[in-house]
Structures are given as C-alpha cells and as structure tokens.
Design a protein around this nucleic acid. Structure first.
Lengths: 380, 380
DNA sequence: ATTATTATCTTGCATTATGCAAATTAATAC
DNA sequence: GTATTAATTTGCATAATGCAAGATAATAAT
C-alpha cells in the first residue's frame, strides 16, 4: 500500500474522525459522518484488511443490550512516515508510525551546505532507518522535510530559504526532492511543520481551527483552518514575527540571546540557556515583557483568525514557553475591548522534535480529507 | 427548482468556475475542473434544461478548426434571491437575479424594534417584490438578512446583535426566521455580507483568499479562505475593529463623526458628509491619519491571513474610501520588515447596496461547492 | 468539390461508491 | 427459553463518473 495507498474521501473522513474523537464503533462513525452504516462497514473492512485499522472489543459496552460494538482504532504499524529537519548545522531524521511514535531517529552533522550533499545525507539516513526497521517501503507514506526560516517571494511561485541561499529554488510543483528519497517528498518550514505535529499527534487532534505561535530564534507560526494548513499568497500566513518589527525589542529567542549578550552573559546558542539563566533578574524582566507581547499577539490572532485554540511552542526553553501559557491563563481579559472569553491557549506537546512535524506532512497528504485530490464527484 | 434545486458537487464547481473565469465551453470546463468532458456534457445539459445556464455561440472561435465550441453562461433569470438589510432605523430589501442585478428594491421605516414587527415588515416587502416580478417561488434560492454590529458571545453558540438587544437569540441551527419568509433564510452581519457581495458579484469573483475591510460607523470586516467565508470561534474572524482600541482615535466613521463634532461641524449622520466637508483641513488631516492606520491594518492582515487581495469598502464617503486605496497603491513598502510585494489592495465595487450581500447568502448556499452538504462520497 | 484534419460535444457501457432494507449476530431482559 | 435490542453485514438498486468510440461542424489541403 502506501505508495499505491489511495484512500477515498470517506475513508479519509474515517481516519480523521478516529484521530480526532478516538476509537469508535462503525455505528458511531456512521452517525457522526452522516453516512450509511453499510458504507462504513465496507470501507473499514478494506481498511482493516490493509492493516490501517484494527478491531477490538469495546470495554465500555459491558452490560448493555444489543450486539456488542467492535471498536476501530488506528493501527500504529499500518502506516509509517519519514521526517527530516534541517538545522543550519545539523540534520535530524526520524521514522514515525501511524500513532506518531518515533520508531527510529538520527542526528548527523551537515557535510556542507550544498543541496546535493544535504539531501543525499538526509536520504541515506532515512533509508537506513527504514531498512533497519525492516519496513515495507509500501507502508511508508513518504518523507517530509522542514527547516527554519521564512519564505522569500520570487518570480513565479518559487520559494527559497534564507539559511540555504545557494539552493535551487525548491518548488512544490516540480519535485526536485523525490529523486533523492525515492518516495513522495513534501517540505515546509519548521513552524508550519510544528502545526502539523500538533494536528496529528499533539494537542489539536480534535481542533479544526487553531493558530500556532512558534518561538525559536525568530517568531514563526501557522494557522490551520478547517483542518487544513492555511498558507496564504506568499506562504506567509501565520508568520507572526513580522508583527514585531526587528528594530524594536521582540519576544524572540534572538532577542533574548542579544539581551543576555548585552548583559555580558555569554551563551553559545539558544539551547545553552539553563536553569541558572532563568533565575537571573535580566531574564525575568525579559520574560515579563515578552509575555505581554505574546498576550498582544494572542489578541491580534483572536481578532483576525478567531481560532478555537492558540498553541504556544518552539525551541525556547520549555519553562519560558510554559510561563507564557501560564501568563495567558491568569489573564482574565485578553485585551482592551475584547468582549469574549479567551480562546483556548495551550502549550505545544510535540515541539521537542522538529522532525516529527515534517514526518506528519506525508501522513496528512495520504489520509486527510481536505488533502483529497481524487476525482471530484462528491455525493448526489 | 430552487427550493428543490439540489446541485451536486460538480455542478456547483461548474457554476463557480463560470462565475470566476467567465463563460466557458464544456471542453474548457472539463479541462479546468479535471473531470471528463462527458461528465460536463451531462451536468450542463440538465443545468441548461433547468434554466440555470444558457448556451451561445463562441465569437472568439471564428476561423479556427474543429467543432465550434458552444459557450455556457450563467442565465440571469435562472435563479433569484432576496436580501434584507436591517439598519437601526430602516429596512432595505431587494430581489436580485443570478447575475447580481437588482430586479426590485424597497426601503421602509422600522415599525418598531420588536423581532416580530421587523421580520413581518421585511418578509412582506420581499414577498411583494417576488409577486410583482411574477417570479416562480421555486426559482428563489431564499432570503438573506444582514445587519450592522458584531456578535456577542453567549452560552451555547447563540449570537445576538447589539442594535436589537431584545431579540430572541437567533441561532443558525434553529431557524427562527423561516416562518416569516416561507423560504430558506440565512443571516450574517453587514461586513460579512459585503464580503459575499464582492465574492459573487464584485471584485473578488476570481479570488479564493481575500480579506475585506468594512468601514462604517464601526470597523468591521471578514475573511474568505478557500472561497468560503471564515467565521471563527465566536464569529469574530476578520472583525478588525478590535485591533483599534476604542480609547484611542481610530479609522472609523464614528471617530470621524466625533472629530467633526469636536470641531463644531455638526452633522446628523455619516451620510450627511458631503464634498464641502471633504475639503476641510480637519477632515484632510483625519484622512491622512486614518490612511496610516489602514496601512497598518493591511500589514497586520498580510502577516496573518496573507491573502491575495484586500478589499476596502463600507458606508464611509466613497472619496474617503477611494483615498485609502490610493494611499495603499502609492505605498511601495507595506511596512517595516515586510519583504514581499503588496497584496492586491482594491476598492469594493458593491458596497453601495448592503442588501445585495445579504441576497448573496442563499445563492452561496445553493451554488457554492464549499457549501455543499450532500452525501459525502467524493471520488474514487 | 472532395477529402483530410481538427476540436467539441455526445452516447453506450463499465465501474465505483453509496443508500436502503432486510437479514444476521450476539448481547441483555423477561 | 423467548423477546428485545443494537451493531453489523449482505443483496440489490441507484447515482455519478470515466473511458472509448462515434457524431458533429468547422477549417485546411488536395
């Protein structure tokens, strides 16, 4: 399957419903999706046969009348996906299963920054993992690639990433990447990948509309509308960083980095920030100021996208990110004139592994109803 | 038809394609929609038979080889829709055809502000127009209702409008309005209705993703994502007004109104602003300041939704709105650190008739693919 | 003038996905 | 042991589409 795996629209809706609402009986699925029970039976029997779903007894249905429902759950071993995260100075790779569990992962130094070297090294690592795990390549949905940085606008609809300026323009249409990996490859930036990680394996599996605030060296993010990542005209949707002009202080990791440097507290990189730094007054006041800026950003998000949930995550020290969420939870009014209750503001759960979101990209392509690109003959 | 009119998914896609790209041959439709020519033939023949589409000779195809294509256009008389706009002190109603032409309209004073009186009066006016035009009720898709104001959050998902505080909570689910009109009724606020007017009969018929800045007494707006209005958690998506705290000066009609009042230039209502006011220095400086605020808003929109187009419209004096657009066109850089070209920023074309957008609501429901709610069995 | 070429449109047949209704199944309730 | 109940399955009908061959109406070539 996988590469020949071509799930129909309602099969994808079944996958989405189980991911969002958990394991369900066929009857439940039929009710919630508004399709005939017979249809669910037919679709799920092939899906169970293909190893995508598993049947098990319903523990909750003890003592009730009627035919005991058989519960359908997503079979972790039914589908796998590979993920690659490209740091400026290293490559992280992984293979995940359908449950979002890391089956294997690896970290390697960048050979050099040429497109060929980077992609060859990444592909080699991924292929090794698939081999070592003894996976059938047909069960691997594809490989996702993510990287830090925003997109720059070019002629045509081609994008380029700042960290790798000498790369050929990697377009979504012309697949430059597939030759390296020998399977479908999709790519996006780290923040948008983090979005997908939460949508598929994190705190937003049951949320149709949410926004993600991704705090790393820069301030990135993304928006999911109707269960689908919304990218925008120049792939700039949800790139909140631009709301904080670089000439001012801003709630970014680079800003904290610079603040520490000015205060003569030398750190090599963001990850070097430890508990001893968090206790420092200068960091404390930075966190207080940044929290207020994040609050303003949440207000802007609430007034633009008005999402159900706002997720905060990134590579900043977890305690700093936790602090931002705590700040928002303590706030009773989001901002001036904001008459509503706060949207649900939560901490990201899968921002520790940036390659996980990348790996979710092919899964999305293969199993999400909104990504369905088959013949369009919806209903009658 | 109409009330029994139940267009399938691909039939709706055909309507959408013709609306967006203009009259097309069946072959063009088949190519652009990615469906078989035979399918287009079958669907369009019934649609022509139902009077939704008309066939005509293709003038451009003179002198070319091959079977001369027959061009399909939307038949204006194939579908009608009624619209109601509720001002705080008057009711405006209209009936439009499928081409968005006003077939009849009316303006009446509010009898009183009770729900019953307002709805009865509006329904009576609409029914009279349908009768006078001699329309088959089955050709009327329904009635749309719009009104100024934002939604307030209530328990459950019920909304209420400030101007009509004593109204029963009008939910989208439980249809309180249908009994008055005897046909399907949908409602939304004036800004979101204006969005639809541009999407169906204005400057955004070919734009999948756009944002609308609606300037009236207040600052409203909306966002269309993937050809569908995005509403948000508390129907607050695109309500940009909240980005300008009321404690400060803001680019709203009320703010201009107050500015004039302070300068001892008494006007009764927004519509009283005439050319003589536009020449005044105080208005000039207000416009300059407001234009900068609108520019900032465009920057925020570009950094959140990143839409293809931003539409500016409303009930402010047209020259003021034109001025905002002109300001944006002259600006070469949208804002600090904004590296991209500007989104397309245009003047609304259908903001003169607020009831028009309301009338587009039922048309959207009946003909838009994204609003298709039939059995979900998209493709194989 | 006739034939070839071309592109659009249409029709017959096969296929896919689904709904409906009746039948089957496995539990509890009486 | 029989009735009731709810989930699931199966047989049959139906809707929507694709494919391929054919019909149609124009221009181009001979």
């Amino acid at each position: 399957m996988a590469n020949d795996l071509n799930l129909g629209y309602n099969s994808r809706r079944i996958m989405a419903s189980i991911r969002a609402s958990g394991s369900q009986s066929r009857a439940d699925l039929a009710r919630s999706l508004g399709v005939n029970p017979a249809t669910v039976t037919r679709l799920t029997t092939t899906m169970v046969g293909d190893g995508l779903l598993t049947e098990e007894a319903d523990p909750r249905r003890q003592g009730l009348k009627g035919y005991p429902a058989k519960i359908l759950k997503i079979e972790p071993t039914g589908l796998y996906s590979a993920g690659v995260y490209l740091d400026p100075d290293r490559i992280r790779t992984c293979v995940i299963n359908a449950a979002g569990e890391i089956m294997a992962n690896d970290e390697l130094a960048l050979p050099d920054r040429s497109f060929q070297s980077v992609m060859s090294a990444a592909a080699k690592s991924v292929k090794e993992q698939i081999n070592d795990l003894g996976l059938d390549q047909n069960r691997v949905a594809g490989c996702g690639v993510s990287y830090p940085g925003q997109y720059t606008e070019d002629s045509l609809r081609v994008q380029r990433i700042q960290q790798f300026k000498d790369w050929p323009n990697v377009s979504i249409e012309q697949d430059l990447l597939k030759p390296y990996f020998g399977m479908p490859v999709k790519h996006t930036n780290d923040a948008k990948a983090a979005c997908l990680a939460e949508l598929y394996h994190g705190v937003c599996t049951d949320v149709e509309d949410f926004c993600y605030i991704w705090l790393s060296y820069g301030i990135g993010g993304g928006a999911v509308v109707g269960g689908n990542p919304h990218l925008g005209r120049v792939q700039g949707a949800g790139e909140w960083g631009g709301l904080f002009p670089k000439s001012n202080s801003r709630p970014s990791g680079q800003d904290l980095f610079d603040t520490l440097k000015e205060a003569c507290v030398p750190i090599g990189k963001l990850n070097d920030i430890g508990l001893e730094h968090l206790k420092m007054p200068i960091v404390h006041s930075w966190r207080e100021r940044a929290a207020k800026q994040i609050q303003w950003l949440c207000l802007v998000i609430a007034r633009t996208f008005d999402p159900k949930t706002i997720v905060i995550g990134g590579t900043l020290h977890p305690q700093i990110l936790d602090g931002f969420v705590d700040h928002m939870v303590l706030v009773s009014v989001l901002g001036e004139d904001y008459q509503h209750s706060l949207p649900n503001i939560v901490r990201a759960s899968r921002d520790d592994l940036p390659e996980l979101g990348a790996a979710a990209l092919p899964i999305h392509d293969v199993t999400n109803p909104t990504a369905y690109a088959g013949k369009a003959n919806k209903g009658w």
